[in-house]
């Protein structure tokens, strides 16, 4: 492979060897040259970003929330599409009762789960359950909390201890210690339990381990946190055993179509193309996964013609692998 990006390391599944060319900055520099007059434009869809801004941290590049989430679901890593710096958090602004709030999502955590699930996609149900035994299969909210980082509105550090305080009114979080020392500083020890934003009384709420219904009833938190990278991962991990077995069933049914198409290529050949076992497995994986996502994790035979779609996708993948149709 001929590489133009310095930061890219060779990965498996290569058709040819990776070689790095010199003018590595070329591709990055270009973007600035062509997008200079369109600063508030989402680099993925090229539409203006008016609301639902998502900012990658630490590089601060901005996208539509939906666009960057879609990319994260698809991508093999968490590199920023623009600068290729590995992203750690995703910061999203939203409005809650007239207050502007930021929510941070821990991308790494979510991504690791996604990777594990994808690697496990070909495993059996018992294997999967064994592998994820440590993750609460039934407890969606614990996963949401794990993926979501909450930061103290006073010191800016992450809230994770048992003594965190929470303001329901404006969705602010505080370390108890920070609230107390602030109250002490201003000489009003008694009022330490007042939110510094709205003066409402704060309540004790451990954002990590307590089940605080008000936290999870907030539609925005729920929606956005559920959509952290690897949507399928979120679904799988948060699913009950029953749901898990349904999902695996969907996968099996989808794979049947893909295997059917690939079998023809493998056994007798199609339009002059005969594929080997390795490519069979490779393409089966890629295409099945794509159809699975496209199906929104349901087997929707009435909406999707799986045979046609499988044929099309297999065709695309084989072209990518360098096969030539006669």
């Amino acid at each position: 492979m001929t590489s133009l990006i310095r930061s890219d390391r060779p990965k498996e599944l290569r058709l040819c060897r990776n070689t790095q060319a010199k003018k590595a900055d070329l591709v990055d520099g270009m973007l600035d040259a062509t997008m200079v007059d369109e600063l508030a434009v989402c680099p993925i869809c090229l539409d203006e970003i008016t609301d639902s801004i998502a900012t990658l941290k630490p590089c601060n590049h901005q996208f539509h929330k939906d666009c960057i989430r879609k990319w994260h679901t698809y991508a093999d890593d968490l590199k920023c599409p623009i600068c290729r710096i590995e992203s750690k958090h995703l910061e999203m602004g939203y409005k809650l009762g007239g207050y502007h709030k930021n929510i941070k999502i821990n991308l790494e955590k979510g991504f690791n789960i996604k990777i594990t699930i994808e690697q496990a996609e070909d495993h059996s149900l018992p294997e999967l359950i064994e592998q994820f035994g440590s993750i609460h299969l039934n407890n969606q909210s614990s996963l949401i909390r794990d993926a979501r980082c909450v930061f103290c509105d006073i010191c800016g550090q992450e809230c994770s201890g048992r003594d965190d305080q929470y303001c329901e009114q404006c969705d602010s979080h505080y370390h108890e210690e920070c609230l107390r020392s602030l109250a002490c500083e201003v000489g009003d020890r008694e009022s330490w339990q007042q939110c510094i934003g709205c003066r409402n009384l704060v309540i004790k709420g451990n954002t990590r381990t307590d089940a605080h219904p008000h936290l999870f009833d907030q539609r925005i938190v729920r929606e956005q946190a559920l959509e952290y990278p690897g949507n399928s991962a979120a679904r799988m991990v948060s699913a009950s055993e029953e749901e898990l077995s349904r999902l695996l069933n969907v996968k099996t049914m989808i794979q049947t179509h893909v295997r059917g198409v690939l079998n023809e290529y493998y056994q007798s050949g199609v339009d002059g193309i005969k594929i080997n076992k390795r490519h069979f497995t490779e393409v089966n994986k890629t295409v099945s996964r794509r159809l699975y996502r496209l199906s929104k994790y349901r087997y929707q035979e009435d909406l999707i013609n799986y045979d046609t779609e499988a044929k099309r996708q297999v065709h695309i993948e084989l072209c990518r692998l360098g096969y030539v149709y006669i």
Binding site: M1, T2, S3, L4, I5, D8, K11, L13, L15, C16, N18, V27, M30, L31, T34, P43, I44, C67, W71, D76, K79, P81, I82, R84, T286, R320
Partner: peptide
């Protein structure tokens, strides 16, 4: 063409046809 930015693994959605 054997060019890595055209592969699934190396492509970035921030690039366009000019790139």
């Amino acid at each position: 063409i054997c060019l890595d930015i055209l592969t699934r693994q190396h492509w970035s959605p921030a690039w366009d046809l000019l790139h």
